[in-house]
Design a protein around this nucleic acid. Structure first.
Lengths: 214, 214
DNA sequence: GGGCCCACCATTGCATGCAATGTATGCAAA
DNA sequence: TTTGCATACATTGCATGCAATGGTGGGCCC
């Protein structure tokens, strides 16, 4: 379906910064770019509005740029939901409902994330980091939580794109990932929840600090 | 905007059971009912799909009926988010950022909910109960959490409509509301979070029990 | 020279035409 | 009687026309 294609492509372009926060999009313009008529584009823009990636602004829509307080809100929601998914994942592990291969794969992603971060490959690190967190959400086997998290991650990613900076303490971040991984593997739901929440809120603090320029 | 009107009206009709879970909706049919063309109806149906209230099913869409496991997922997400909003509300109260009138109003809603429940006015009780929880989310002043909760509440409401049964222990529910209210008023964030989570998960248990018929 | 108002036009929102497509129905054959 | 297939049709998805609307630039007045 073309409107889905339009949604996917536009989402990509927004998430990778091609359309940065504040950029204005009009139906006709996008229709010309994607070589389709206004109808599917229109639907895609509406969907992106519902996703919170763009908002109506007079004529057309603009890519959202969450202000500091809204970004804080997003991190709070993210922390609550990641605490939940981490807890659920650990619980499922305790019930023997998680395939060992999935845990191996999760560790690999964690290692790759640490490597990319340590070597300063920032864009790659961001992608791997997100994948790590998404893998955990998938292990929680809660589709609603996963779907909601995807939207929150998207919103945060857009609003922090311009401040792409390396974590101030890469080892610290990797350490938290390790702790989270351990809590899940060893089936300690309460610990997993606590670590996940603390980790997300740590990330928030770092992001806010690097948010000042511009 | 007509597509917004269509969205609102259809959402109402779904939430009040006029279109029960499983009901099939087609663009033309709805367009005729709402007396508008297919275009705004089409957009409304897409939005409702994104909201998780309907899902595409061959031709047209059908009103969703979450199966037991998905309903459980929804309750888990709801519990996590209401724990967050209760915690944030209590924290804000501790910072003196909540107007006394808002707390008075919250208590009034709690009382009205208890009264309606005790007297068996179920439909009214459901509405008041939702208002009580929404008020707390509003006190948390986190727009993203509130918005996300609205969607989850909607999904749960649709899937539990047919099993509209009085709480097995009305006094218990009212007692939990009181505890939650007290924790917020007395600015005990941790308690508020714990009570909110427990309360939601209690509600879930009740709902599941009444879920068997049909 | 600066500010305000008006007119124009880009752009959206809605309606509708048209082609593609999946579904259901009916008929025939086993 | 049941199953499989073909055909017709309901319904969607996309394109485009048309009217409404709000923003912007230019011109005029102060």
């Amino acid at each position: 379906m073309q409107s889905d294609v339009a949604w996917r492509r536009l989402r990509e372009l927004i998430l990778d910064g091609t359309y940065p926060p504040g950029a204005r999009l009009t139906e006709m313009e996008v229709a010309a770019t994607l070589e389709m008529s206004r109808t599917p584009v229109r639907e895609a823009l509406r969907a992106l509005t519902a996703d919170g990636l763009v908002r109506p602004a007079g004529r057309g829509v603009v890519v959202v740029a969450l202000e500091a307080s809204a970004l804080e809100d997003a991190f709070q929601v993210r922390a609550a939901l990641e605490a939940l998914t981490a807890e659920l994942a650990a619980t499922r592990q305790g019930e023997g409902r998680i395939a060992p291969a999935d845990l191996v794969s999760l560790r690999e992603v964690a290692d790759a994330t640490a490597a990319a971060t340590a070597q300063g490959r920032l864009t790659e690190a961001v992608g791997l980091n997100r994948r790590f967190h998404r893998r955990i959400a998938e292990l929680a086997a809660n589709a609603i939580a996963l779907h909601t998290l995807e939207r929150v991650w998207d919103q945060i990613q857009v609003s922090t794109l311009r401040s792409l900076a390396p974590p101030s303490r890469p080892a610290h971040v990797s350490g938290q990932h390790e702790q989270l991984l351990a809590a899940i593997i060893e089936a300690r739901p309460q610990d997993a929840a606590a670590v996940a929440r603390a980790h997300v809120l740590d990330t928030r603090a770092v992001t806010h600090r690097t948010d000042e320029p511009t």
